Simulated scan of single mutants.
Amino acid sequence: MSVIAYIKRELLDRSTLFFTALALCSGLALWWLRGEEAFRVAAYSSGMLVLMIAPIILIAMVISCYVRKLLPTKHVERWLGSESGLRGLAVAMLGGMVTPGGPFAAFPLVVGFYRAGASFEICVAYLTSWTVLGLNRVLIWELPFLGFDFVLLRLLISLPLPIIAWMLAKLLTRQRNA
């Protein structure tokens, strides 16, 4: 696939175009309503944010591509495919729990696994686990601020959520494919 075809297929999709248009309209509205100085401050702040986040996104996307190319599809399908069952669910939940970082790290990994053969329901379970059971967040934020009893109870209540999400995704996938 040529670079131009890849850019057209991957980068110029509807969501990219929508958010580009939204950013341009927001910038114009800011300039019109608050003036040039407010626009410059916002543009500088957003530029600094992009510079701070870009390396994380770049590394995560490289890892996503490596996952896709390094892991043979048959192994990914065996461990994370639609026939992986409870083993796949357990791997997804554990993976989601131990994945550090924010969405800039987790989502490219999911894309890599999904394109390498992981099933939709396993990816849903992974993201749900990462969202509600993430140990990094628990250790750094929740325990110091909320205390052990609160965090333990929250984790116990949240533990079934990736399982429920996996089951619902599996059900919806079957209905859609039927």
Rank of each mutant, 00 (worst) to 15 (best):
residue 64 S to D: 10
residue 162 P to L: 03
residue 64 S to L: 08
residue 14 R to M: 08
residue 59 I to T: 12
residue 118 A to R: 01
residue 76 V to K: 01
residue 105 A to T: 13
residue 132 V to Y: 09
residue 7 I to M: 14
residue 59 I to F: 11
residue 156 L to T: 02
residue 60 A to I: 01
residue 153 L to A: 12
residue 143 L to F: 10
residue 52 M to A: 11
residue 153 L to E: 04
residue 23 A to Y: 04
residue 21 A to E: 02
residue 141 W to H: 08
residue 166 W to N: 05
residue 83 E to F: 01
residue 90 A to F: 05
residue 151 V to Q: 04
residue 77 E to L: 07
residue 177 N to L: 12
residue 29 A to K: 03
residue 136 N to V: 03
residue 39 F to N: 07
residue 37 E to L: 10
residue 149 D to P: 00
residue 66 Y to K: 08
residue 107 F to T: 02
residue 115 R to C: 05
residue 165 A to S: 13
residue 8 K to I: 00
residue 154 R to C: 01
residue 103 P to Q: 12
residue 33 L to M: 07
residue 107 F to N: 06
residue 37 E to M: 06
residue 76 V to A: 09
residue 115 R to K: 15
residue 152 L to W: 04
residue 128 T to Q: 05
residue 112 G to M: 06
residue 82 S to E: 15
residue 140 I to M: 13
residue 73 T to K: 14
residue 15 S to R: 13
residue 169 A to Y: 00
residue 8 K to E: 04
residue 58 L to N: 03
residue 134 G to N: 15
residue 69 K to I: 03
residue 19 F to T: 15
residue 154 R to T: 06
residue 145 F to C: 05
residue 117 G to L: 08
residue 75 H to E: 12
residue 131 T to H: 14
residue 150 F to Y: 13
residue 129 S to K: 05
residue 4 I to R: 15
residue 171 L to E: 03
residue 121 E to F: 03
residue 1 M to A: 13
residue 76 V to C: 09
residue 63 I to W: 07
residue 120 F to H: 14
residue 34 R to I: 00
residue 97 M to Y: 07
residue 120 F to N: 12
residue 19 F to G: 11
residue 30 L to T: 11
residue 18 F to E: 03
residue 21 A to I: 07
residue 164 I to Y: 07
residue 49 L to I: 13
residue 6 Y to M: 11
residue 73 T to D: 10
residue 126 Y to M: 06
residue 176 R to A: 11
residue 46 S to I: 08
residue 6 Y to I: 10
residue 66 Y to N: 04
residue 117 G to Q: 02
residue 132 V to K: 02
residue 137 R to K: 14
residue 133 L to C: 03
residue 168 L to G: 06
residue 25 C to W: 04
residue 83 E to Q: 13
residue 140 I to K: 07
residue 158 S to T: 08
residue 58 L to Q: 05
residue 99 T to F: 12
residue 72 P to K: 14
